[in-house]
Design a protein around this nucleic acid. Structure first.
Lengths: 329, 329
DNA sequence: TTGAAAGCGCTAACAC
DNA sequence: GTGTTAGCGCTTTCAA
C-alpha cells in the first residue's frame, strides 16, 4: 500500500505538502514541484486510505440506499439516478436490502462508516430514526407514510393520476374502472381519491362497483379481471395504479376472449421492464423515478453540508407512454 | 459521539483497559471493574468508531456483493445467504449494482473501505482483478466464464440438469425439447450438453429440431413455443434452463389451446417468485442459491484470514419442486 | 514556498 | 491487575 509518506520520501518533500497538492488545495508551490508530486502519485498508483481520511475528517464520503427485498421493477431507475448523483458529488453509494425491523441496519451503518441514508422503500421506525440522528447519520425517505414526516423526496402522484385520468378522458372513455394498490404508503392510500377527483371534474362518476384494490405486483388482478369482464354494462377502460396490475389484467381479459384495446382500454402506472409484457407492452404513466433517486441522494448530501431541507416533490412532468393498450372509444 | 476516552474518564481507568474489556480480551481485571466499564459503555451508548478501528487494524470489516442491474429473480436468495454469513461472522455486507466496465467499482471500494468482494453476476476484467489484488481486496465469483479461473463458488449444474432430465425420464417422457439459455457463463454454455448427456445414458436422443436457445428472462420463449406446438410428432415434454423461460412457454402453449401438463409437461430450472406464475406455478429444479451466497461470503472472509481457496462447488442436492406442470406420460 | 507538529479514536506490545 | 506508549495515514494550523 502506498501512502503519502512514500510519495513524500520519493520526491523529497513533506507529507503535508503532498497532501495539499493532491487535494488541489490553494497553496503556493512551484509548478515543477507540483507536477512532480502529481506524477509520482500516479506512477505509484497512490490511493488515499479512506479510513485515515475518514478518521481525520469525521466523514466517510459513503452513502447507502435501502431498497426492498422484493425485486420490484421501479428500483433500477431510482438506483441509477441515485448513483449518478453520488458519483457527481464524489460519494460512494452502497445498497442495503431493506429488512424489517431495521435493527441490523444500525450495526451495518455503524459508526462513521456511512454518512447518510436514503430509504427508497419503507421508513425507519421512531427508534431507528432517533438512533440514526444520535449517530449523526443524515437520512431522507423517498416514500411517505405520513403527510408531514421527516424530509421526503416524493413523486407528484397527484399529477400522475391526473395524467392517467386525462388520457382516458381524452380518448372519450366515461365508463371506467380503477384498480388501486393496497396502501403501503401515504400516497398509495390516496390514489383512488386522486383519480376519482380528476374524473369528477369532468363530470364522470365512478360507482363503487368500479373500484378495486390489488397488490402492487398484480396479485389479485386476475380475479378482478374476471369481475370486470362480467360487469354490465361493460366498462370501456381500466386504469391501474401499477403496471404489474395492468399487465395481469390485460392477460386475463385477453384469455377471456376480450380484445385489448378494441373492447377495453387498459392503462398502467409507473414504467418498467414489466410494462413490455405482454408485447408490445402496456400503455402507462411514466413517473420521474430516476430523478427521484437523484434528488434523494442530492438532498442527503445537502443535509450533510448543513443545508436544511423540509421535503420536496419532484416536479418533472409525468409522461404517458403509449404502447397500444388504449384506444379511442 | 462517545469514545473510549469518555468511558475511561468516567470510570477512572485508562482507555486501553476499557478497550480490552470491551473487546472481551483475556485480561485479568477485577469483576467489579469489568462490570462497571461494560455498564458505563452501555449507559453512554458507546459505539466504536469504525474509522479509527479500521485504520488501526487495516480492516474495515465490510464486504460488498456485486449484483446485476436487471432484477433477476435468483438474487434475493443469494443475497439472503450472503447476509446470513456476513452477520454470523461479524461483517457488514453492502450491495453494489453491477456495471460494465467495473471502473467505478474501484473508487467505490476505495482503499480500506471494503475488505472483500463477491461478484454474484459477472466477473472482473483482468485489469480490475489485478487492481483489486494490488489494493489487497479479496474476492470470489459465484459465476464462471472460464473453467479454471480465480476461486469460484459454483452451483453443481451438472447435478441440476441431471435431476431435471431424470424427472422427465421417470415420468416416462422420451420425446423431449430442451431450451437452453444464451451463454452468459461457462456453465450456461454447457447446459444443453449436460442435459443431452444424461438423456443419452437412458438411450434417449434429442434431435437438433428439439434444441432451442432463449434469453434467461424468457425473451424468445413465445416464438419457441410456437415452433414446439407445430412439431410433428409433438414432443411430450419441455425442459427449460430457467424458470422464466418455462413460465413463458407454459403461457404460450396454453394460449394455443394445449393443456399443460396433460398434453405437454414443462419443467424449469432454478426457483424464484416467478415460478409461481401462472398459478399454481411451474415445476422446477431448485438449486442451492441461498447456500451459494452463504458460501461466497464465507470464502471471502476465509481468504481475508489467509485461508487459501481454489474454488468450490456447492454439493447440496438439487430438489425438484413439483407444482403441476409435469405429468406422467 | 515549504515543513513541523498535533491529533482524529483505536489497539497491542510492553512496562510496572 | 492496570497504565504507558507508540503508531495506523491523513489533514490542517501555525511557524519558518
Amino acid at each position: 500500500m502506498v501512502t503519502l509518506k512514500d510519495i513524500a520520501v520519493k520526491v523529497g518533500v513533506d507529507v503535508s505538502t503532498v497532501s495539499k497538492v493532491l487535494q488541489g488545495a490553494p497553496i503556493r508551490i512551484s509548478d515543477a514541484r507540483r507536477e512532480e508530486i502529481v506524477r509520482t502519485a500516479q506512477e505509484m498508483d497512490y490511493r488515499p486510505n479512506l479510513m485515515a481520511r475518514g478518521l481525520r475528517l469525521k466523514r466517510s464520503n459513503a452513502l447507502a440506499m435501502i431498497v426492498p427485498t422484493t425485486t420490484s421493477y421501479l428500483y433500477p431507475e431510482i438506483i441509477d439516478g441515485a448513483e449518478q448523483a453520488a458519483e457527481e458529488r464524489g460519494y460512494a453509494l452502497f445498497l442495503i436490502k431493506s429488512q424489517n425491523p431495521h435493527t441490523r441496519l444500525l450495526s451495518v451503518v455503524g459508526h462513521g462508516r456511512i454518512d447518510g441514508l436514503v430509504f427508497a422503500d419503507d421508513q425507519p421506525s421512531e427508534e431507528v430514526a432517533s438512533r440514526l440522528n444520535s449517530l449523526d447519520v443524515s437520512w431522507v425517505c423517498l416514500n411517505r407514510t405520513k403527510p408531514d414526516d421527516h424530509g421526503h423526496v416524493a413523486l407528484d402522484d397527484e399529477a400522475g393520476f391526473n395524467a392517467q385520468a386525462e388520457h382516458l378522458l381524452k380518448l372519450g372513455h366515461r365508463s371506467i374502472v380503477f384498480v388501486s394498490v393496497t396502501p403501503s404508503s401515504y400516497i398509495s392510500g390516496l390514489c383512488t381519491r386522486m383519480f376519482i377527483d380528476r374524473m369528477k371534474k369532468e363530470g364522470v362518476d365512478l360507482p363503487q362497483t368500479h373500484l378495486f384494490q390489488s397488490e402492487f405486483d398484480g396479485g389479485q388482478a386476475a380475479d378482478i379481471a374476471d369481475i370486470i369482464a362480467e360487469l354490465s354494462p361493460r366498462p370501456t377502460a381500466v386504469a391501474a395504479a401499477s403496471v404489474q396490475i395492468a399487465s395481469r389484467i390485460v392477460e386475463s381479459l385477453r384469455a377471456k376472449g376480450l380484445r385489448i384495446p378494441e373492447d377495453i382500454s387498459v392503462v398502467g402506472y409507473h414504467d418498467s421492464p414489466t410494462a413490455l409484457w405482454p408485447p408490445p407492452g402496456i400503455t402507462t404513466v411514466k413517473m420521474p423515478s430516476r430523478r427521484q433517486g437523484y434528488q434523494g441522494v442530492s438532498r442527503v448530501i445537502d443535509l450533510l453540508n448543513g443545508v436544511h431541507f423540509e421535503g420536496e416533490t419532484i416536479d418533472e412532468r409525468p409522461v404517458v407512454i403509449e404502447r397500444g393498450t388504449c384506444a379511442p372509444l
